[in-house]
């Protein structure tokens, strides 16, 4: 224990890697993307895949309801005290990028109340292709699009598709039914993102969320000293 770590120090301001008591805080990963692309389903699958090996919690940012939080509660992917819903005043991108204070409180309260935690998933409300997370809120971000939203989305780019630390192209099982060209989506994504990784995923397949869970484990290994 270092002498300069007092338990009564007020909460850290933003992205500090340590909590007020000097312990290392949980890794925070943001999930953003358009409405209906499968963010909540991916969060649920990640919780099921990782909950036996990690101490986990989830923050949801619904646009006007608690639907996402309630879906996760109903599916019982985590105990209810590990899931917090943040209200965003009709502007989900504001709450994850421009004014992150409510989300920071939610992650800090989760660490105080159910910690210690290894990982907190912060799910954005469904938004548009420009929604990205502040570095003051998350350490890494996943952008989730799906094949049914149009196979030209990777080509169109935008901050989410281009700069997210991981891009998920979700619902690949639907590609034949909606006329989406998976090879073209993968090639366009590669062209937009250079070395940044892309995962094509179907949560209905046997592999499910495996690749994304492995990516999360690698992030956590890099985060943990």
């Amino acid at each position: 224990m270092h002498l300069d770590h007092h338990h009564d120090t007020p909460a850290a301001l933003s992205a500090d890697a340590h909590r007020p008591d000097g312990t290392r805080r949980a890794l925070r990963i943001g999930l953003g993307g358009p409405v209906g692309s499968g963010k909540t389903a991916t969060v649920a699958a990640l919780c099921r895949a990782l909950r036996d090996e990690l101490s986990l919690a989830v923050v949801t940012n619904d646009i006007y309801t608690r639907e996402d939080a309630e879906f996760l509660l109903r599916e019982a992917v985590l105990p209810p005290e590990r899931i917090t819903a943040v209200e965003t005043g009709a502007c989900p991108h504001t709450a994850i990028r421009d004014d992150i204070s409510a989300n920071l409180e939610a992650v800090e309260d989760l660490e105080d109340e159910v910690g210690p935690l290894d990982l907190i998933l912060v799910e954005s409300g469904g938004d548009n292709l420009t929604a990205t997370f502040s570095k003051g809120l998350v350490d890494a971000q996943i952008f989730v699009i799906d094949v049914a939203g149009g196979d030209d989305i990777p080509r169109k780019g935008g901050p989410g598709v281009t700069t997210a630390d991981l891009l998920i192209v979700n619902k690949t099982d639907l590609a034949p039914y909606v006329g989406s060209d998976l090879a073209r989506m993968a090639a366009d994504a590669k062209a937009q993102r250079a070395e940044l990784p892309v995962v094509l995923q179907s949560l209905r397949s046997e592999a499910g969320v495996t690749d994304v869970a492995d990516w999360v484990r690698a992030q956590l290994a890099a985060w943990t000293p």
Partner: peptide, 27 residues
């Protein structure tokens, strides 16, 4: 809630022992 959120932004903008003390008193 709004006071807590303002506290974070204020402490980052104008660090002050009085703000620190209030944050400690009202976590």
């Amino acid at each position: 809630k709004l006071g807590r959120q303002l506290m974070r932004a204020a402490r980052a903008s104008w660090p002050s022992t009085e703000l620190d003390a209030l944050a400690r008193e009202f976590p």
